[in-house]
Design a protein around this nucleic acid. Structure first.
Length: 820
DNA sequence: ATGCCTCGAGTTCA
DNA sequence: CTCGAGGCAT
């Protein structure tokens, strides 16, 4: 049976998308360009022949396409800066105060302008002629979009008037007016084209079109708001006069630009624009204030990549109303049951929101969100959608308060709440497929074992099929198994796959699909020739993509076998043990064999590990299943820890038996009492043998002595104490670790990274800072030594400024790293 | 006990 | 990114 056009179209779309994604996200070529083009052409032909199959999200309509979508790079001689943000009146007043103090001036004049929601660009004029236009890019380097900018009617090709500098760069915002955006989408809907999400995306997408004719059809506009490089000429001494001059030279400048005085003037302007916002012809997301006189600007200078003389005052996150269609719960890696609201999709602050976390049952109870409710949603911090409140008047009749289900929707185990905790958990542990999948995904994740290419979709299938039950099974996977898996997944189902293949194989070759495909693997020349003779490149491409994936995944799994103790400890997914704790454990103990059998009180020897984390570690390693899983990883999986070393000598400081007793958290046992106890009963064996009277004789109050006796009898505590004592002696007997690291120049300093770095990845920067002894943390506080801010730095930069923490830009970091 | 400072864990969308 | 909560200094 030959595949229906619909099935065929589905397969094509999936292949095109896989290849396109690999190319865009990883710069990886899954299939040659010619093959890719063939796939796209076939899909186009199919969609034309069967218009009912054409879909708005089809890759044939994708903006930009695939290969060659690279624009030339343009280096900005004067960097295109980002702006600091203000969200409250106070922050604006602080901004004005800082300037007043530094410039020692009472009256400050600002140029205030609307902040358009578009795309920042730079236009270069030489001898009055438009020669080049570029996007902002990372601020230092952008993309050359000259051809597309020439299509924008309001951008002058030649400067008007006179007196312009020999070289003039004009900075401004390309945007799409609301009316033009609506018209575009109406047209797109009519012709079944791709509907764009918002004017901003429309502008950005249009500008990055490769074909200028395409972007010409979309009506873009432009407002100038500043200048970049200027050579062979002078600009007026104030920003406002410069804008007027730009207008005279032929540039559109918003007529909402105004000069105002002091913070009062700024705030009045903000309110005025806020009121007029909805009536404007274009979207704005705030207003921008710039110190008007250039001399003052120069005196103020820059922090990181942002000028100190300008700030963006943002409007509050946009809110929208929508309805709650369902409240589902998701089971996380630790079993945490998180309620998520499925919403009727709605556009909030530029994106379509269809899910919003409700965080936990308390939050639902507080808001009293019910299925069917109309709610207000907001994008908190402009990213993660949240439900703000319920509109009570619009609640349908007959609803009941939402309740946490009593059983896990995935495995059916009971959902329980720990005492005093906020979170409900599925009690199924690793017998719950949801938890097992998440645990495996965590194990494979980049910061853990780093098995690239093993996404959630494949883990789902592997676990559902029973091929992978635990993490060690990953190391048993065979290439052909994976190949089959991928082929079936790509086709949607084994049946779909078989029917598709049947059509393209010669009659004598049809039959078992998988066998057919597998035999194409270069081993059988006859098959190979037949495949090449097939009418469509389909089988080849399917095969090539799948083979590539399987080979890559096998290679990634193989590469993950050599790992560090830190990564493996993190990968195990022990509760409360994240990257940082795993790193500390690895550094202090150095040896998995030791860690696996360590009684929990001894984990507290490591700074930043307290009772909770230590118990969690102990609990994990007590479980037989976990020990077996680790054994399997090592023996069957051939996982090797490459950095095993001796425990740190520092572990021995203050480590006597009395301390072990204290750290075991026995009720009533203080350091003083423990010492008395040890003086009378010097080791664990003696202690265990002793009658409670001996404890009293050693100076313990009656109730504490009885409590201790009771404690020793319960829950294997006695045995644990014996083990702890044995381990303690072992640690003491170990030769001191010679390889104590030399103190780096940043030893003991905490550094925070924020924003996007252009020259290196954040992981890279982190590793290099750590190599110098720094601790790289995620949150800014007074103790932070300095904050490294890349482009688009967010709240952490703001916080650093508030706390007066030093801010480095990327160049400074690079210079520092180079010097050390 | 109280109040930082961090870390861990969970999540959204392009 | 944000929230909750663990660890530790006061």
């Amino acid at each position: 049976m030959s595949p229906s056009p619909a099935e065929r179209a589905d397969v094509l779309r999936r292949q095109i998308e896989d290849a396109g994604k690999a190319y865009h996200e990883r710069d990886e070529l899954l299939i040659p360009d010619a093959d890719y083009d063939a796939l796209v052409r076939e899909l186009e032909a199919l969609e034309q022949a069967h218009p009912e199959l054409a879909r708005a999200d089809s890759p044939t309509r994708r903006v930009g396409g695939k290969a060659s979508s690279r624009f030339a790079e343009v280096r900005h001689v004067v960097p295109m800066l980002s702006l600091g943000n203000a969200f409250s009146d106070e922050e604006v007043q602080d901004f004005v105060r800082r300037i007043g103090e530094r410039l020692r001036r009472d009256a400050l004049y600002f140029s205030a302008e609307p902040k358009l929601d578009g795309l920042a660009i730079s236009l270069r004029y030489e001898d009055g002629q438009f020669v080049q236009g570029a996007t902002r890019g990372d601020g230092a380097t952008g993309e050359d979009v000259t051809a597309n900018l020439r299509q924008i009617r309001v951008i002058p090709h030649r400067l008007q008037g006179e007196g312009w500098p020999d070289v003039l760069e004009v900075r401004g915002e390309v945007y799409m007016a609301r009316a033009d955006f609506e018209a575009y989408n109406a047209d797109a809907r009519l012709h079944d084209g791709k509907v764009l999400a918002n004017p901003r995306n429309a502008a950005a997408g249009s500008l990055r079109q490769l074909d200028p004719k395409v972007s010409a059809r979309r009506k873009l506009s432009f407002f100038a708001y500043g200048t970049g490089e200027v050579r062979g000429g002078e600009l007026p001494a104030t920003h406002s006069a410069t804008l007027a001059q730009l207008r005279a030279w032929g540039f559109p400048v918003s007529d909402l630009c105004q000069v105002v005085e002091g913070s009062e003037g700024l705030l009045a302007y903000y309110r005025d624009i806020g009121e007029r916002r909805d009536g404007l012809a274009f979207d704005i997301d705030g207003v921008v204030y710039k110190l008007d006189d250039r001399a003052g600007q120069e005196q103020m200078g820059f922090v990181s990549r942002a000028p100190r003389w300008a700030i963006a005052h943002k409007f509050p996150a946009q809110e929208q109303t929508t309805t709650v269609e369902a409240i589902e719960i998701q089971i996380g890696r630790t079993g945490a049951a998180t309620p998520v609201a499925r919403l009727d999709p709605v556009a909030v602050a530029g994106v379509i929101v269809s899910n919003a976390t409700l965080h936990n049952a308390d939050q639902i109870a507080r808001l009293d969100v019910r299925v069917g409710d109309t709610v207000i949603v907001r994008r908190a911090g402009d990213v993660i959608p949240e439900v703000v409140s319920v509109i009570a008047e619009r609640r349908p009749a007959g609803t009941a308060p939402w309740q946490m289900p009593t059983h896990c929707p995935v495995c059916g185990a009971e959902i329980v709440r720990e005492e005093g905790a906020a979170a409900w958990r599925c009690s199924g542990e690793l017998s719950c497929p949801a938890q097992r999948k998440e645990a495996i995904a965590h194990f494979a994740s980049r910061r853990a074992m780093d098995i690239d290419g093993l996404g959630g979709k494949y883990i789902d299938t592997l676990v559902d099929a029973g091929i992978v039950r635990g993490v060690a099974d990953l190391y048993r996977l065979q290439r052909d198994q994976l190949l089959q898996l991928k082929l079936v997944l790509d086709a949607g189902s084994p049946e779909a796959l078989a029917s598709q293949i049947g059509a393209h194989l010669p009659p004598e070759a049809s039959g078992d699909y998988l066998r057919a495909i597998l035999q194409l693997d270069g081993r059988d020349e006859t098959w190979r020739a037949q495949a090449l003779a097939m009418p469509a490149a389909f089988v080849w491409n399917t095969k090539k993509i799948a083979t590539r994936w399987a080979d890559n995944l096998i290679a990634a799994i193989d590469a993950s076998r050599d790992t560090t103790l830190e990564r493996l400890l993190f990968a195990l997914g022990i509760e409360h043990v994240g990257e940082s704790t795993a790193k500390a454990l690895a550094a202090w103990f150095g040896d998995l064999a030791l860690i696996r059998r360590l009684p929990w009180p001894l984990f507290k020897r490591v700074p930043d590990i307290g009772g909770e984390v230590a118990r969690s570690l102990g609990h994990f390693f007590e479980q037989d299943g976990n020990q077996k899983a680790i054994d399997a990883l090592i023996t069957i999986g051939k996982v090797r820890i490459t950095d095993t070393h001796r425990p740190s000598a520092k572990l021995r400081d203050g480590l006597d038996f009395a301390q072990v007793l204290v750290e075991a958290e026995i009720p009533g046992i203080t350091r003083l009492r423990a010492e008395k106890l040890v003086a009378a009963l010097p080791d664990a064996a003696t202690l265990l043998d002793a009658e409670p009277v001996r404890f009293v004789a050693a100076g313990l109050p009656n109730d504490v002595a009885l409590g201790l006796a009771d404690w020793l009898d319960r829950d294997g505590h006695g045995h644990m104490l014996l083990k702890a004592e044995a381990c303690r002696q072992e640690l003491l007997a170990l030769a001191p670790d010679q390889a104590e690291q030399i103190a780096g120049p940043l030893e003991g300093q905490t550094v925070v990274l924020t924003g996007t770095l252009a020259q290196m990845t954040r992981d890279d920067a982190k590793a290099r800072l750590e190599a110098l002894g720094a601790k790289v943390s995620g949150s800014v506080s007074r103790k932070t030594a300095f904050v490294v801010a890349g482009t688009e730095a967010g709240s952490k930069l703001t916080k650093a400024q508030e706390l007066g923490v030093e801010v480095w830009d990327e160049d400074r970091l690079l210079a520092y790293l180079a010097a050390h």
